[in-house]
Design a protein around this nucleic acid. Structure first.
Lengths: 251, 251
DNA sequence: ATTGGTAGATTGGTATGACCAGTTGACCAT
DNA sequence: ATGGTCAACTGGTCATACCAATCTACCAAT
């Protein structure tokens, strides 16, 4: 009986908690680039933790491109739009009030739509038997549960994961990781509206076939069409949400 | 007189030095995912630094998606191909012997070629007067030094930076940062071979005009053609290097 | 008026040693 | 086979120094 469905308990270290607070403050609080952070010792007092925890958090912030420290000169906030990498995306997705930032969601959909056709193209050019058979297998699994949207969503993500692997492009590989991580936080919200894309088994099969044949043109075009279906639906949803938010604001 | 051309001296903190060593070991040494790292105390002995420095470095590695720590359970190496973000790209570009990893270089060129047309498209749809005037200004500056390839390269990067800003897509914005950072390390190597692209002032002007007019189709097509010119040249160079390496290996 | 020097306060960087808190595995009782 | 216990190990937290770079303000020399 799996009825109890338990989730792992989350333990958060102090350094991680400090990182969360400060990164939130930087990306969502209005800390202008160039602003000086409080000194490490001051942060210790404010947060009531020891200096080691603060320093570990600051190192992470620096690694994420959010701050820059200089020995003796203090710590400053950077313009993360210029210095951060894609992994920041998932932190930008939710606003402090836990609502979704629609611009971020739109950005993700746009980028995946641009990347997917090229990923399919490269995969068709370079894929090895291992990848093609994995793709075929995923298509089979999709065909076995044509009505389980949640399962289809997972399988579709695995499908794209495999395509990315087959594209042998490390930049796509790393970018995909960040996009997927961000998208994962939207899955529940999008699973229904993207139903048309997820149920389009013919397209997935067509891509898998094109990859097997090495037909990069076909893979590109089918992938583009597939992306456009899902994207269009999502853009409509985002527009609808935007309107409804607007209405609330007017009230 | 700027003849002496001095560069800032680099100071490296202990934590940063530890981070460099460990990350290098993980991405280029053959540390299989799942491998356990030595304990923090063991690393202190091996590296002859205090534990704080080690922990700060480990926090950075975890932030970069290279390792995962569990309280009491040790620290393990992750599969960075699945857990890292684009900012790892610049670390992958150079091999331990300081030669360029050609696959990484190719990946960067491929991704920029796929992103650029869509960035131009979105910018044309959304650009505001500030962006369009900045673009026009950059084109003017490019026209003023049509033979200074190094200057043109910088201006071209600024041009694309501005297009990315105008696209109002935060995902592109962050991805571009990482790609640019990686590309910057290749600038000297590529400036000559990409001369055709960099000197193609007509295309840059055409894109800037299309953006101003809001002509997204035109912006897309010109950008695609522009990218293809440079990419083709670079792919030829990479193939040539590969052959020459092969020849050396046979000798 | 500009340049260069100095001293003190402030800030980040390093070091040590201790203790808390989970994990693991071996051993044992049931 | 299951669950309990304990010792060893590993990461997490803490307090307290002290070193090293910087900033500021003030001062001296040119």
């Amino acid at each position: 009986m799996n009825a109890m469905r338990l989730r792992p308990v989350v333990r958060t270290s102090l350094a991680d908690a400090v990182f969360e607070q400060l990164s939130e403050e930087i990306v969502h609080g209005a800390m202008a680039p160039g602003t000086a952070l409080p000194s490490e010792r001051a942060l210790c007092d404010m947060l009531d933790v020891n200096r080691g925890a603060v320093r570990e958090a600051l190192k992470r912030l620096a690694q994420a491109g959010l701050i820059a420290t200089s020995h003796g000169g203090g710590t400053r906030v950077l313009n993360f739009r210029k210095t951060s990498s894609l992994d920041l995306l998932s932190r930008l997705l939710f606003r402090p009030d836990d609502t979704v930032d629609l611009d971020v969601a739109r950005s993700v959909m746009e980028m995946r739509a641009a990347m997917a056709p090229d990923i399919a193209r490269l995969c068709a050019r370079r894929a090895d038997p291992k990848v093609t058979s994995r793709l075929a297998q995923i298509v089979v699994e999709m065909s076995e549960k044509p009505d389980d949207l949640v399962a289809l969503q997972t399988l579709a993500l695995d499908f794209w994961d495999e395509l990315v692997t087959g594209s042998r492009n490390i930049a796509y590989r790393l970018a995909f990781n960040s996009l997927r991580h961000t998208y994962d936080q939207l899955r529940e919200l999008l699973v229904a509206v993207m139903g048309d894309e997820l149920r389009d088994l013919a397209s997935y099969r067509s891509i898998a076939d094109a990859v097997r044949r090495g037909d990069d043109l076909s893979a590109t075009h089918v992938a583009r069409a597939l992306m456009e279906r899902g994207s269009a639906a999502v853009y409509e949803l985002l527009a609808a949400i935007r309107e409804s938010d607007q209405a609330k604001e007017d009230a």
